[in-house]
């Protein structure tokens, strides 16, 4: 089988491109898409040591956005429960927006979150220990991103452009370790990397956890808090409490004293005699007046 330039591993292509003079390197941009991106990356790396270009490069890198699209709630079995999951989604979106972790867009088809690169790293640093492996639905990366990846990520090490394209285009179950994803984010190059996670922890862990644990707990908490707030708001609890306290202070044991007092007063009224009924015991009243 006849070989061509693109059958060589990417590390070698970089070596070859580095050996070219500046004009030839830039002309290589016109040959095809892949040589264009390799030539651009080589040119960037070639001028990287120059202090004058450092700032430009840094500014360029800082503008890179990595877009992750999480297809939350759209997979089979959840579509019918869209409304049921809605509060969870709204809660999640509001938390994400409140913490300013990501720019979250929410629509009828699902939720997409756009992270800046640094946000993404810190976000995933926090969450990945919980996740373990991520199964990637599809990984769409532009050529220059692939080349950057091949130099840094072991997953893509030693692969040619063709092999990488094959790997990326033909796998729906590409398993990425945490470090691979972090490398992917860190080395996403001067382009946008879009990663669609389908069967990641949002279904396997977070949503199921929320579904099984969060909603019942949240409902109980909300109901009990609501009841308490209602009671205090209507001044029911203070009234009942204060009435009981007053009776106890006046008559000691709440029930017996109250019953005796009622009885005494009733008999006093019947007899028409005025007594200090509060101080008087029932037995004395019977002995003295009956």
């Amino acid at each position: 089988m006849a070989l061509n330039l693109l059958d060589l591993p990417l590390e070698l292509l970089y070596g070859i491109f580095h050996s070219m003079d500046d004009k030839s390197l830039h002309k290589m941009r016109e040959v095809c898409h892949i040589t264009e991106s390799i030539a651009e990356t080589t040119a960037i790396n070639r001028t990287k040591d120059s202090k004058s270009t450092d700032l430009k490069l840094e500014q360029k890198l800082n503008k890179i956005d990595v877009t992750f699209e999480f297809s939350v709630g759209l997979h089979n079995g959840w579509e019918g429960e869209w409304n049921y999951i809605l509060p969870v989604k709204l809660f999640f979106v509001s938390v994400m927006n409140y913490l300013q972790i990501a720019d979250v867009n929410y629509n009828s088809k699902g939720m997409s979150m756009t992270f800046t690169r640094s946000d993404t790293i810190s976000f995933f640093n926090r969450l990945f220990p919980l996740m373990g492996k991520v199964e990637c639905k599809s990984l769409m990366l532009l050529p220059s991103t692939l080349e950057m990846l091949s130099l840094t990520s072991k997953l893509f090490e030693g692969k040619t452009v063709h092999e990488l394209k094959f790997l990326i285009n033909n796998t729906n179950q590409l398993k990425l370790e945490r470090n691979d994803v972090l490398n992917l984010i860190r080395t996403s190059g001067p382009n946008v990397a879009t990663v669609c996670f389908e069967r990641c922890f949002w279904r396997n862990w977070l949503i199921q956890w929320m579904h099984s644990q969060f909603l019942p707990v949240a409902m109980i908490l909300m109901c009990s808090t609501g009841t308490m707030a209602l009671c205090f708001g209507l001044n029911i609890i203070p009234k009942v409490y204060l009435r009981a306290r007053t009776l106890e202070r006046n008559f000691g044991s709440r029930t017996n004293s109250a019953r005796k007092h009622t009885c005494t007063v009733s008999k006093e009224r019947q007899s028409g005699t005025r007594f200090n009924v509060i101080e008087m015991r029932h037995e004395e009243m019977e002995r003295r007046y009956w």
Binding site: G15, M20, V31, H33, E36
Partner: peptide, 27 residues
Amino acid sequence: TCKTLANKINGKTVEEMREILQLECDF
């Protein structure tokens, strides 16, 4: 060998580069 290949490309026109590297323009 990498330098040799680079030398073959250096100073060539874009069309010559495509011919040497056996690549097609996909732009």
